[in-house]
Computed example of a mutant assay.
Amino acid sequence: MASNISQSKSDLTKRDFRAMILILFKLQRTRVEIYEYLQEHYPDLVLSLSTVERWYREIIHGNFVLEDAPRSGRPNISHNDDNVNEMLDLTTKDPHITYVQLDYETE
């Protein structure tokens, strides 16, 4: 079973870690114990103690929602495959292209 866990570590999302924090909270673990557990079992994880503490506080205040809250504003569209490929093509054709030129070419 341990091999299944190690294979799926890269597939874990923020939602998964929030769920683990919620479960460990319900098992009456402290913030530090939860952080140490996550660091022990997921050493490559970039999750700070302050993040664990923030999610822990949310749980204490009754927020058991595992998903990110919706945010207002324009959606981030800069990291889709089409945009990445377009930028790659432009920079491959002209490695000295400026940000202003890239902005103009991709409008």
Rank of each mutant, 00 (worst) to 15 (best):
S3Y: 04
S3E: 05
I5G: 08
I5W: 09
S8A: 13
S10I: 12
D11L: 14
D11G: 12
D11R: 11
L12E: 04
T13Y: 01
K14T: 11
R15G: 00
D16S: 15
R18F: 01
A19Q: 08
L22A: 10
I23L: 09
K26E: 11
L27H: 08
L27W: 08
Q28Y: 11
R29N: 11
R31L: 02
V32F: 11
Y35Q: 05
E36T: 09
E36H: 10
Y37P: 03
E40P: 02
H41Q: 05
P43N: 02
D44R: 03
L45F: 04
L47H: 04
L49T: 02
T51Q: 15
V52C: 02
R54N: 05
R54I: 00
Y56L: 03
E58C: 11
H61L: 11
F64H: 10
F64T: 15
E67R: 15
E67K: 15
D68N: 13
P70R: 04
P70M: 04
R71V: 14
R74L: 02
N76C: 06
N76A: 08
D82T: 11
N83F: 01
N85V: 09
L88Q: 13
L88S: 10
D89R: 14
D89Q: 13
L90S: 05
T92G: 04
K93Y: 06
K93P: 00
D94K: 10
D94G: 03
D94I: 04
I97G: 05
Y99W: 08
T106Q: 09
